[in-house]
């Protein structure tokens, strides 16, 4: 479904964010990427839908090379890939419904949507998406009036509107407390199991990883340092986990937060 071949990203200031990363994603997987802040997780996810242009390597999506796609192709590919963000990235002043509807922008007529006009079927779909994440009653509130957990659910609803084949989740629970973390990941797991949406997610906490992942990739310094299947993860000890995270692992075990935006 998704093949990543020798992906390298070097930023303008010379930082090597990814170095020769290769892996495949099979349909229906719940693939979790682990690693410290700055290990390249976010860059990797953003390269997949080309929010960031990779320096080298190929990303093959259903046989099409995303790195070489023209704008029209890219648009079509992007709309099949939903994205959920650590800081939700909602338009705070817009109503929840508008935020959810914006997930349809890749499908609707660009000109009529500019005036915030959407077909009735899309509106119905948006309400259904909100119902799915359990916040129908918040549809007409401003996005910033919602709690963090609710905002992330709006984020998921927005991704759902794309009718995606895959969802990229960039540390979706890092800004939430642990109870909400489970709620959000449950939603993602449901989509994964019921809608067969592939999930590619970066995460930090071992217990969450063990609970949800069907496969894990560990990144350190922009390189893959660990690959493990469901069985391997379930039996993973704290020591092994710390090994992936490197010598700074103590900080991970101290608290749930990674302390800011990771790139």
């Amino acid at each position: 479904m998704l093949e990543i071949k020798n992906l390298t990203k070097v930023y303008g200031d010379g930082t090597v964010a990814l170095h020769n990363v290769s892996f495949d994603v099979e349909p229906g997987e719940f693939l979790i990427i682990i690693g410290l802040s700055g290990s390249g997780k976010s860059t990797l996810l953003r390269c997949i839908n080309r929010l960031i242009d990779p320096t080298e390597g190929q990303i093959i999506w259903d046989g099409v090379d995303i790195t070489a796609a023209d704008p029209q192709q890219l648009r079509t590919i992007r709309r099949q890939i939903g994205m959920v963000f650590q800081h939700f990235n909602l338009v705070k002043r817009s109503p929840v419904l508008t935020n959810v509807l914006s997930g349809r922008l890749g499908y609707v007529n660009p000109w009529s949507s500019v005036l915030h006009r959407f077909p009735p079927s899309d509106r119905k779909m948006a309400m259904a998406a909100l119902e799915r994440v359990g916040i129908t009653d918040q549809a007409y509130k401003r996005a910033d009036e919602l709690s963090g957990g609710q905002q992330q659910r709006v984020g998921i609803a927005r991704a759902l509107m794309q009718q995606p084949k895959m969802i990229l989740a960039d540390e979706p629970v890092a800004s939430l407390d642990p109870v909400l973390a489970h709620s959000i990941l449950n939603h993602l797991e449901n989509l994964n199991q019921e809608e067969k949406i592939t999930v590619l997610c970066s995460l930090h906490y071992l217990d969450l990883i063990q609970r949800y992942a069907t496969r894990v990739i560990g990144l350190r310094g922009g390189e893959i340092v660990y690959r493990g299947d469901r069985k391997a993860i379930r039996s993973m000890t704290d020591e092994e986990f710390k090994e992936i995270y490197g010598e700074e692992a103590e900080r991970v075990s101290v608290g749930p937060h990674d302390g800011g935006v990771s790139l």
Partner: peptide, 28 residues
């Protein structure tokens, strides 16, 4: 805030759509 711009972009929106949905509401 660049976050919403990124998010709208990721949905496959065009540049104009991104401006109308992510930039303008923040500017008003």
């Amino acid at each position: 805030d660049p976050g919403p711009i990124e998010a709208i972009h990721a949905t496959g929106a065009t540049r104009l759509q991104t401006i109308m949905f992510a930039v303008v509401p923040q500017m008003i």
